[in-house]
Amino acid sequence: MNQTMRHNGIKASISIFFLFAFFLVGFFALLGIFGTNPNTPAGHEGYVYEKPRIFGKGGFRGELKGPSNYGISLWRNEVINVDFRPKTYPEDFKILAKDELNISFRFQSIIKVKPGTIRTVIEDYAGQAFYERYIKEPLRAMVRKHVQYLKSREIKEKRKEIAESVAVDLQEHLKGTPFLLVSSVVGNIDYPPVVTLAVEKKLAAQQLLDEKETQREIAKKDAEIRIEEAKGIAEAQKIINETLTQNYLQHEAIQAQLKMASSPNHTTVYIPSGTNGIPLINTVNKKQ
């Protein structure tokens, strides 16, 4: 009888072991089929929630700050991740300025989400769609308000002032929300083709005027140089005329006669002429 009891005990133990093993396999199979492990990447925060079930309403389960995992659970937990890093949001505009010209430009805002506000962002501000749902259209209205009263030329000249004014309005709009404005700027401004063409013509005309002015200055300098040269020639002639006295000319004529008289290559005939004794000179070359 003891052997029978011992045999029955062993069988019961084996049954309990297999039953436990079957239970574990079934549990992990359920985790594989129905379980989830929500995770959030770096730079993001995650809103963990449970999907509604047949029994129970589901809902918020917790928050994650990436990179991290929520952990495996049997119930189908999900996560909504939102990027909390600063991001640039560009908006393109084509606005009629005060002088009736359509001006095209881009306005760029850098906005970030305050850390630790993921639940508010998801439940009150549409999660990742917060910019489209809450910021975009108010921002565009602010930009139009600060641009429409300006003339087309003033828009380019006052780009910094426009960006600063819009930033003040947007910061007021974001007060009390999970969002922060980091910076804003007015990008490239494009004028209508007719304005661009007029500016190009004006620049070309100005360049031509500058060139003519340069040429005029060069001509003026050349004229000044010629005047100075003429003054120099006139002064030289004045000095020469003052030094060419009758005695000096007679002396130079005598010296010339002495040089010619000593030359073996020609015969010189002196013809007395004039009251100062300076002769007329006729030179006849000798044959070699």
Rank of each mutant, 00 (worst) to 15 (best):
N2L: 07
N8M: 04
G9P: 01
I10C: 01
K11E: 03
A12M: 08
I16S: 07
F17P: 00
G35T: 06
P38M: 04
Y47N: 04
Y47F: 15
V48C: 08
I54Q: 13
K57I: 13
G58T: 08
G58V: 10
G59E: 07
L64I: 03
I72C: 00
K87V: 00
Y89S: 08
E91D: 11
I95S: 03
L96F: 03
L96I: 12
D99M: 05
I103H: 05
I103Q: 06
S104C: 01
S104N: 06
F105C: 10
R106M: 02
R106I: 02
F107A: 01
V113S: 03
P115S: 06
R119F: 06
V121R: 11
A126D: 15
A126K: 11
A129Q: 10
F130N: 04
E137M: 12
L139T: 04
R144M: 14
R144Y: 15
R144E: 15
K145G: 00
H146T: 00
H146K: 08
L150S: 13
S152H: 13
R153T: 01
E154P: 05
K158Q: 15
E161C: 02
I162Y: 11
E164A: 02
A167D: 00
Q171F: 01
G176R: 05
T177P: 12
P178K: 05
P178I: 01
F179P: 09
F179Y: 13
L181Q: 01
L181M: 01
V182H: 00
S183Y: 11
N188I: 07
P192C: 06
P193I: 07
L197I: 09
A198N: 03
V199H: 04
V199F: 11
L208Q: 09
R226H: 02
I227H: 11
E229S: 10
E235T: 15
E235D: 13
E235W: 05
I240K: 15
E242C: 02
T243E: 11
L244I: 14
L249T: 08
L249E: 02
Q250P: 00
H251W: 07
A253N: 12
A256H: 08
K259S: 00
M260Q: 09
A261G: 13
V269N: 10
S273L: 06
G274V: 11
G274S: 05
G277F: 08
V284A: 07
V284W: 05
V284G: 01
Q288E: 13
